[in-house]
Amino acid sequence: MPSPWKSRSEREPRRPPASDAGRGPAGPGPREELRLYGLNAVRAVFARRPDAIRKLYLTEGRIPALQPLLKWCVAHRVGYRVVEEEDLHRLAASAHHEGVVADVLRVEPTPLSAWLRDLPDGPQCAIWLDGVGNPHNFGAILRSAAHFGVAAVLLPKDSTLALSGAAARVAEGGAEAVPLVRLGRSDNALAQLRGAGFTLAATVVSGGRDLFATAPPARLVYVLGAEGEGMDRELASGCDLQLSIPGTGAVESLNVAAATAVMLAAWRARA
């Protein structure tokens, strides 16, 4: 069996071509692939769906920590290159790559009907993100969702929100643990979720019920609004509950990622 380590002559050039994110004419294109970076993000893909890995770049210092992955790459003829730190800066377009970058196949969101069909009975919690767009907030939400055992993150029909390398790194592996689900029209989605036994709770800055004084239903969807504009008013009014997180009033509100963590902790404590 060939050695899992590359010689210096086989290493990545100092300026890796941008086209490395995609494949050749016969393989997946850039839109079907995602460039991940960060140790936990890459390890999570390897643990859950190793066949999705298409190419790996790492610094020499990461070889010991990634030996199982490198051996897998050799056994399955997946290319990898040992590169310099500055090469990873360019590949990831970030200094926060933690010594490893991987090109992996992207998982497309599941349609709502398919997700509901396969969802087990019993207590379940999901998050509906209305207009959230910041990748770091998205990553933090996915991390909290994985920690508290959320069944899915629901994305509106016209939402452009998608997993990015930055979001996956912030999620610290959580992006692989929480399915993304694509909704249809909002009114249809509300009806489908209610038909599956879910209560929908809009999270509002003020005027809602006290989160900590309200017993959460066993099957619950938290609907959270955008970072700046907040939630669509029609959607908020169409939910079954409106919930607020009480605080001192010293600041107007928590940001959407922090609010999500608080909401999920409240559900987990009482579900």
Results as ranks from 00 to 15, higher is better:
residue 2 P to A: 10
residue 6 K to Q: 13
residue 7 S to I: 05
residue 8 R to T: 12
residue 15 R to H: 12
residue 17 P to D: 13
residue 18 A to P: 02
residue 20 D to L: 15
residue 21 A to D: 06
residue 21 A to G: 00
residue 24 G to M: 03
residue 26 A to H: 12
residue 27 G to W: 08
residue 28 P to Y: 02
residue 30 P to L: 08
residue 31 R to V: 00
residue 32 E to V: 00
residue 33 E to R: 15
residue 35 R to H: 02
residue 36 L to D: 04
residue 36 L to A: 06
residue 43 R to L: 11
residue 46 F to N: 04
residue 47 A to V: 01
residue 49 R to A: 15
residue 52 A to G: 14
residue 52 A to H: 12
residue 54 R to G: 13
residue 60 E to S: 14
residue 61 G to K: 14
residue 62 R to H: 09
residue 64 P to M: 12
residue 65 A to M: 03
residue 68 P to A: 06
residue 69 L to E: 06
residue 78 V to R: 15
residue 81 R to Y: 14
residue 81 R to A: 15
residue 82 V to I: 14
residue 84 E to C: 11
residue 87 D to L: 01
residue 87 D to V: 15
residue 88 L to Q: 09
residue 93 A to D: 10
residue 93 A to R: 15
residue 94 S to H: 09
residue 105 L to W: 09
residue 105 L to H: 07
residue 107 V to N: 01
residue 115 W to F: 14
residue 120 P to I: 05
residue 120 P to A: 06
residue 121 D to R: 14
residue 122 G to W: 03
residue 123 P to K: 04
residue 131 G to A: 10
residue 132 V to A: 08
residue 135 P to T: 09
residue 136 H to I: 12
residue 141 I to V: 13
residue 142 L to G: 03
residue 144 S to E: 05
residue 145 A to H: 04
residue 148 F to T: 06
residue 149 G to D: 05
residue 153 V to E: 06
residue 154 L to W: 08
residue 157 K to G: 01
residue 158 D to T: 10
residue 160 T to S: 13
residue 162 A to E: 12
residue 163 L to Q: 10
residue 164 S to F: 04
residue 175 A to G: 10
residue 176 E to S: 09
residue 177 A to R: 14
residue 178 V to N: 04
residue 179 P to Q: 06
residue 180 L to R: 13
residue 181 V to M: 02
residue 181 V to G: 00
residue 184 G to Q: 10
residue 185 R to E: 12
residue 188 N to R: 15
residue 193 L to F: 11
residue 193 L to V: 11
residue 195 G to F: 11
residue 200 L to Y: 06
residue 200 L to W: 05
residue 201 A to L: 07
residue 202 A to H: 11
residue 203 T to A: 14
residue 204 V to H: 07
residue 205 V to S: 09
residue 205 V to N: 05
residue 209 R to S: 13
residue 216 P to H: 03
residue 220 L to T: 10
residue 224 L to M: 13
residue 229 E to H: 12
residue 234 E to C: 07
residue 236 A to H: 08
residue 241 L to K: 04
residue 245 I to V: 13
residue 247 G to W: 06
residue 247 G to T: 00
residue 252 E to A: 15
residue 252 E to V: 09
residue 258 A to H: 09
residue 259 A to Q: 03
residue 263 M to H: 11
residue 271 A to G: 15
